[in-house]
Design a protein around this nucleic acid. Structure first.
Lengths: 342, 342
DNA sequence: TTGTAAGCGTTATCAC
DNA sequence: GTGATAACGCTTACAA
């Protein structure tokens, strides 16, 4: 490896060929231009030998295509999003795309900044699980022509393509199960207030109660964040009431963990003193102090579908006219955290 | 917003200024070139109004700098790496860098492909938690001049900058604690065999035994992967022996989960029948069936330091001569998964 | 079957 | 104070 090759120009120089020919071979257009088999061989071999790596900046500038997707999520340390990110990265890569990752930290301002960054990096498309409260910039980005798919925290009212779980049904199933186990005083600890997963799960919660003729008690619908602290805090408050609920419906795995922490501190046993059902199945769900009854979401499918839909938008401008809205079934996993009461 | 501005050229056109002037203002070189305050105002305002986003491809091509870092990790669904990724993304962004994420899936071939991709995207630097067995391409990338920092799975023998936990001390502390609780027959379920965290933790394990005069039994050192399945499988095997260990040292949080699963299936109680201590503290560690005694690593610090060191390499070519090797203290968190025996 | 040259959107060098 | 222009590395009409 005597000469160092930084360029397609260098490579062409070494080979005594023109840049054009080298480029054609490297891009698999050899037969289209009837390039001699021997020439082809030599080019391929030299590229390998000199470890030539094409410059995607230059390529992108010329082709208006960077082979790069952007992903924005609210919290990668939440295993729900980590799993989604993993399936997205895998699906993207197997289609030849690299992934720029942004973690908004549930912060609207950071989300805005991240979108700008992705635009300036000229990503070919964006997958975003938004903070969930303000969609102005997202819709604007979409309308500017950028292929974009929303996951999890969707805004169905504004015609953006999205892929999400059937949060209504999940909420309904969870609460209906609690009711079938004899519970009537059921609390709901919400995630971010105006986010779709929260509103839909709460809608399912209400509908399940209603269908069983259980009157709604607004004092039992509490909280405003998907994180552990919120689960902890709200549980402490709920159980300082004179007539606490017999069951809690936690709207995320992290909230569920917070409930457990609070219960432990208060010397309350799950499910003896509190029944608990939580959104998001996790590897550890089965191994908790009380194996937890959960609502499982199809995270892998969500990620994969998001990429596949996005790639269709990218590959076919006409496809944009079809607005894709997918809703994925959830799955109730029954374990031991809900007690049958009389 | 009548005219759509895609370009600095368009922007200059709208303003009736030259591209040069606009570029200068936008890059904060206004006073250096003594650009009139009014002109400056007009440029800034128009950029905002027309929502001009600079093209980082063109910029990168010109400046040989993309404001982009690459991160390669073996498994983002492992919360240990998810946490690290989060701190890296945050630290990178707060320094003006975007992050390209690759998940190698513990696959050497994928890792190679990902490195190539990062190179072709012309990232300014790379942070990598390698699969851990083959470092040929990594060292080659480093030697080619690419700023690069290795985390977690380091190769201290080859002079690459790295940041890792003090895995030896962590292993020593864990096993020493088990010994102090009366255990003498202690199994160790390893992660990937030649990876540094495994070899170092095992070294700590051996040293602790040795210091207490407990003879080494190679049959108790088993397994070869950081995942749950390995923990499960090895525990099943260990407890099919006629004289099983009284304690298990699990070399990752996922392995620990596998141990729990196996124990449950075999009707064995933790810590009554098996004592367990596991590497990696997680949010759920305290809430498991038996709250788990763990070795905590400073994940946030690791991510932050990795970025900071990398940025120094990027900013100062001379800095390369200093090879940075950092080792972060671990922390034993005692809970209930280890029983005192006589 | 291969080569020449323009252009992608920026920034930096030189000129005015 | 401001502007014209070359160059970054690549792809692709257009030539030959």
């Amino acid at each position: 490896m005597a000469k160092v090759v930084n360029d397609i120009r260098d490579l062409a120089g070494v080979l005594g060929l023109s840049i054009t020919t080298v480029s054609r071979v490297l891009n698999g257009k050899a037969k289209k231009y009837r390039i001699r088999a021997e020439t082809q061989q030599r080019v391929m071999q030299a590229a390998k030998e000199y470890n030539y790596v094409p410059n995607k900046l230059a390529r992108g500038l010329k082709l208006s295509r960077t082979d790069t997707l952007g992903l924005i999520i609210p919290d990668i340390s939440n295993p729900f999003f980590a799993d989604i990110a993993q399936s997205i990265e895998k699906e993207a890569r197997s289609n030849g795309y690299s992934l720029i990752l942004g973690d908004s930290g549930e912060d609207q301002m950071v989300e805005k900044e991240l979108i700008r960054l992705l635009l300036s990096h000229k990503v070919d498309g964006i997958i975003i699980a938004p903070v969930g409260t303000d969609y102005k910039q997202i819709i604007q980005t979409y309308n500017s022509g950028m292929p974009l798919v929303v996951i999890d925290r969707c805004f169905p009212e504004i015609g953006l393509p999205f892929i999400t779980s059937d949060n209504y049904q999940g909420g309904y199933d969870a609460v209906n199960y609690l009711i079938s186990m004899g519970h009537r005083k059921i609390a709901c600890i919400q995630g971010i207030l105006k986010s779709r997963p929260t509103t839909e799960r709460v809608r399912g919660y209400k509908e399940a109660l209603c269908n069983s003729g259980i009157p709604l008690d607004d004092n039992l619908i509490v909280g405003d964040n998907y994180n552990t602290e919120n689960g902890y805090k709200q549980t402490r408050i709920l159980f300082s009431m004179e007539d606490p609920p017999t069951a809690i419906f936690a709207l995320s795995n992290l909230i569920g963990l917070g409930v457990i922490k609070a219960a432990e501190e208060m010397g309350l046993n799950i499910p003896e003193n509190i029944s608990l059902i939580s959104f998001d199945e996790q590897p550890y769900s089965a191994f908790l102090g009380t194996p937890m009854t959960t609502i499982d979401q199809k995270k892998n499918e969500m990620g994969q579908l998001a990429v596949d839909v996005l790639l269709k938008y990218i590959g076919n401008k006409e496809y944009r006219k079809k607005v894709i809205n997918m809703t994925l079934k959830t799955n109730l996993i029954i374990r031991d955290s809900v007690k049958r009461i009389v």
